[in-house]
Design a protein around this nucleic acid. Sequence first.
RNA 1: GCUGCUGUAGCUCAGAGGUAGAGCACUCCAUUGGUAAUGGAGAGGUCGAGAGUUCAAUUCUCUCCAGCAGCACCA
Length: 650
Amino acid sequence: MSAQITLTLPDGSQRSFDAGVTPAEVATSIATSLGKKAISATVDDQHWDLQWPINTDAAIAINTMKDAEPALKLIRHDLAHIMARAVQEIWPDVKVTIGPVIDNGWYYDFDRKEPFTPEDLGAIEKKMKEIINLRDAVRTEVWERDVAIKYYEDRGEPYKVELIEAIPGDEPLRMYWHGDWQDLCRGPHLQHTGQVPADAFKLMSVAGAYWRGDSDRAMLQRIYGVAFQNKEDLRKYLNMLEEAAKRDHRKLGREMDLFHMQEEAPGQVFWHPNGWTVYTLLQDYMRRKQRGGGYVEVNTPQVVDRKLWEASGHWDKYQENMFIVEVDEEHAREKAVNALKPMNCPCHVQIFNQGLKSYRDLPLRMAEFGSCNRYEPSGALHGIMRVRGFTQDDGHIFCSEDDITAETKKFIDFLAEIYADLGFTDWTIKLSTRPEKRIGSDESWDRVEAALGDACQNAGYAYELLEGEGAFYGPKLEFTLTDAIGRNWQCGTLQVDPNLPERLDATFVGSDNERHRPVMLHRAVLGSFERFIGILIEEHAGKLPFWLAPRQVVVAAIISDANDYVLQKVEELRAAGIRAEADIRNEKINYKVREHSLGKVPVILAVGAREVEEGTVSIRRLGEKQTSVQSFAETLPQLAEDATPPDLRS
RNA sequence: GCUGCUGUAGCUCAGAGGUAGAGCACUCCAUUGGUAAUGGAGAGGUCGAGAGUUCAAUUCUCUCCAGCAGCACCA
């Protein structure tokens, strides 16, 4: 007689079963209909396949499609398998690799000589729907390693063999079948393919991806798909993507006449008057904040001799990302090899090293709006978010190791205030810890990592841990913001660096009258003006806060008899510090309103015969349909108030 | 850098082995119009760059450059 186990259901009731009972059997024992509707179980908080036996007492909940989280996970995961099966049914010689669930969907990596075309995607999608309609049962078994390896070797699936070899020896290998199609997989999966909604998924794109994420290995073809519980959710998602495309900073940058880029200067920005207005406003704001935050501002050279880069270690570790500047042999009076600075830190140490510093000078917070050039890989460039020429709101805090926590907390608060001023509430902190290749003792890493973690907690912010992602010289905090389609961008950062002061021999005299080595905190709030403005545009869909809008007000004449009044009001607005323009073109007001609305001008003041007569303006704010008429004398101070940067408001 | 796709007027795009087209924008003319496109006319292109095939290339082939998506990179 087999042993009995007790399972506790979500309502608290307990039932006794033979050990080895499966959730499928449990579900059917509760109700036949539940047995059919079941998709998986949650057993002691673990996501559990309906076919996996349960051998010990446990809490169990049967999941159905009403349980969104497991449902989505299973739908997407089963679709990954169904897609791989479809691909191999159409092209039997394609090799399969891995296919995980990701946000909104899944991907699967294939090895195939010929590229998948958009038409192929259509064919695969069609085949997938056929497979779903077959309602093939999903079956699972645990296999012995050597059997599994032999199986895949015989089938000519080298990637699967490699995957199995990488799985720790004591871990059971699980196989899944969707119909006759087999894949190595941890599971869990659905009961049968028919449980996948056939109308709520879509194959999105094909792209290259390295096997095991290693650029030295084979380039595979990755097909991305998205899937939801129903057609409506899919439609909403696709709609959201369309809306997001309208917020793309590259598109808005052109439409709002902010900047452009061109072939002759890849990865570098031509700022137009409108864009440069935003840039300088942001810089002015940051300059005020930094002064208030206890920073001194400096400026350092662009072109610096390789000797300094050799000393700092950049020549060794970063050279392939640097623009090297060599003067033509014939014209050179001296044989100097220079590089455009990719970072400001070595130059800041040079300033620190001028004159003897005392512990009384620390912490010394040195800031620079530092123009940097980095030869970024061509494939990494992206609008103004990832560029080769950019300006950081850089800063270096020279302090002692004991100051790290306090300085970090101070910095996080500083950054949070600025992000809030600029309209960001949704940002995350990531703490990257010691990588495999590193310098410094483990004790030192322990201390410094703890200092950063403590600082986050003291400041009241949760952080995500990125183990092993730190710089070789020290751990770092990354502050990331999200673009229109959900891609994360690192903007702010704080990195602890005991290495550079060592290499460039920075010292200060302590209270003990001995020389000591300062620690350097590299830090940036915006990261770079370029990236941050890109994010700012996407976050606000181009409708920048009034104080940052390049053109704040357009005064538009409805009839040409109002032109003089318009010009006069524009003068008065400008005198009050408001960026105002007149529109006295020979066009209808409809035309003007449309054009300036598309140009994201926050306020349009329309003026016709009545307004001239009464000394009023008709105000229309961006995004609002209705207008209101009020006296210009009242309007001006209101607009002036709105135009005040957040840090200067009373 | 890698894989795939793309590059035609300022913008968005159509087109075909026989040296190019639309809409918007631009210029001019008419229109003075009340809150998201007034009408008409005109001008505007080495079809990303270079080479090859061809009687003929913007179209086909190759190389390069740039952009897009993803991967890798982002000390």
